[in-house]
């Protein structure tokens, strides 16, 4: 419950946020709230999702054609806007995931590396 209060948390990287949204939609169409919840859950709420930036991000992804939106009925019988992954979005997710892996691996490798002798 305390987790719902704003806490100091690492700022989320822009591209990473899009990646997480796309990932959230791989399990099927979802509305914005469900996406936010999934990201909280999946990252153990370590990353500050920034709900205020979630919706512009969703609309921007829709504009790019990576996700599609349509109005539907939510689990509690309310009108909600559901987002789903398009074919292009799915392809984009694969590419981005691979990029992210390479990026993270490189950063890790750099952090673990010993200082080189000739450097300076």
């Amino acid at each position: 419950m305390g987790k719902l209060l704003p806490q100091p948390a690492p700022e989320i990287l822009r591209g990473t946020f899009d990646l997480l949204i796309l990932r959230a939609l791989t399990w099927g169409p979802a509305h914005g709230y469900a996406i936010a919840r999934w990201i909280e859950h999946a990252t153990s709420d370590v990353l500050a999702v920034g709900e205020g930036t979630l919706y512009p991000a969703l609309h921007r992804l829709e504009e790019r054609g990576w996700i599609d939106a349509s109005w539907g009925v939510s689990e509690n019988n309310r009108q909600a806007k559901f987002y789903s992954l398009t074919k292009r979005g799915r392809a984009q997710l694969t590419v981005e995931t691979e990029n992210w892996r390479r990026y993270a691996a490189a950063v890790f490798a750099a952090l673990e590396a010993q200082p080189s002798s000739g450097g300076g």
Partner: peptide, 8 residues
């Protein structure tokens, strides 16, 4: 947009 945000 209003509908969507208020739903959230």
């Amino acid at each position: 947009v209003e509908d969507e945000l208020s739903f959230h």
